[in-house]
C-alpha cells in the first residue's frame, strides 16, 4: 500500500509539473500540449473505436511475429547448444545479428517484402529470434550435468529428458531471453509501423506517424502513452508470473 501511494504521488506530481509547464507557456502549446488535451484526444479515439482497432492491429502483428520467433528460436537454441557445428555457425550468426539494432531490419524488410504485412512480420521475427536462440543456448549449456545423469538413472531419456529436465532447468535463462526478445520485437514493430505505411492495417505506429504529419502533438504524446502502457502491461501479464515462479522455486528473491 505504501509503495502504491509513493508511486501514485510520483505520477500525480509528474502530471502536475507538466500541467504547470503548459500553463506557464515556457514552450509553445504546439510543442507541449496540455495534459487535458492529451486525455481528451485519448477519450475521443476510444469513443470512435480507432484506439481499440489500432491496438488490436499492432498486437496481432506483434504476437504473430513473437510466437513465430519463439517457436523457431527455442528449438534452434537447443540444437545450437548441442551441436558443435551449429554453435560455430548459427551461434555466431545469432550473436552478430542480436547486436544489430532491430530498427535496422526495416529498410531490408521494405525492399524484400514491400509495403506488406510480411515486412512487419519479418521485422518482429528478426527482433525476437536471435535473443531467444542465444538465451536458450546459454541456458542449456548452463544446465548442471548432474541433473541429466540423475534423470537418466530415473529412466528418463531422449525427448523426455529435453522436455522435463533441460527445458525447466534452463528456464531462468529462457525467460530472460524471451523478455529481451519481446522488448526487441516491440521496438522494431513500432519502427516498422512508423516507416511502413500499408493499407492492410492501421496500427499504433501509424497513429503516431500521422500525429507528426498533422502536427498534432496531443496525438503524438497520447499514443506514446498508450505504447508505454502496453509495454508495462505486457511485462506484468506475460513475464511477471514466470519470474515470480522462478524466484519462488529457485530461491533467487532478494
Amino acid at each position: 500500500m505504501k509503495r502504491f501511494c509513493t508511486a501514485a504521488l510520483f505520477f500525480v506530481l509528474l502530471i502536475a509539473a507538466w500541467h504547470w509547464a503548459y500553463q506557464a507557456r515556457i514552450w509553445s502549446p504546439v510543442l507541449v500540449p496540455s495534459p487535458e488535451s492529451v486525455v481528451r484526444y485519448l477519450w475521443e479515439i476510444s469513443l470512435d473505436g480507432s484506439l481499440w482497432s489500432s491496438t488490436v492491429v499492432t498486437m496481432k502483428r506483434l504476437l504473430a511475429g513473437y510466437v513465430i520467433g519463439l517457436l523457431a528460436g527455442l528449438p534452434l537454441g537447443f540444437l545450437t547448444a548441442r551441436v558443435q557445428a551449429l554453435r560455430d555457425t548459427v551461434g555466431v550468426l545469432a550473436l552478430g545479428l542480436q547486436g544489430l539494432p532491430s530498427v535496422c531490419w526495416v529498410p531490408l524488410a521494405l525492399l524484400w517484402f514491400g509495403q506488406t504485412e510480411g515486412a512487419m512480420l519479418f521485422v518482429v521475427v528478426m527482433g525476437t529470434l536471435w535473443s531467444v536462440i542465444l538465451a536458450t543456448e546459454t541456458g542449456v549449456r548452463n544446465v548442471n550435468p548432474i541433473y541429466v545423469r540423475a534423470a537418466r538413472t530415473m529412466g528418463s531419456e531422449g525427448v523426455h529428458t529435453w522436455v522435463t529436465v533441460m527445458l525447466p532447468a534452463s528456464l531462468p535463462f529462457i525467460v530472460s531471453g524471451m523478455k529481451q526478445g519481446w522488448a526487441f520485437a516491440w521496438r522494431s514493430l513500432m519502427a516498422a509501423e512508423i516507416y511502413v505505411t500499408i493499407l492492410t492495417g492501421f496500427g499504433l505506429g501509424h497513429l503516431l506517424h500521422y500525429g507528426r504529419e498533422l502536427n498534432a502533438m496531443e496525438q503524438v504524446v497520447g499514443i506514446m502513452l498508450v505504447i508505454v502502457l502496453i509495454g508495462l502491461l505486457a511485462d506484468k501479464i506475460l513475464f511477471s508470473p514466470w519470474e515470480k515462479f522462478l524466484h519462488r522455486r529457485w530461491g533467487t528473491e532478494k
Binding site: 548432474i146 545423469r149 540423475a150 525447466p168 532447468a169 528456464l171 522455486r249 529457485w250
Partner: peptide, 14 residues
C-alpha cells in the same frame, strides 16, 4: 539401480 550423488541433484523447478 538408483543413484544418489554428493550434490543432491534435486530439480529446483519441482
Amino acid at each position: 539401480r538408483m543413484m544418489m550423488f554428493q550434490e543432491s541433484a534435486l530439480f529446483p523447478w519441482l
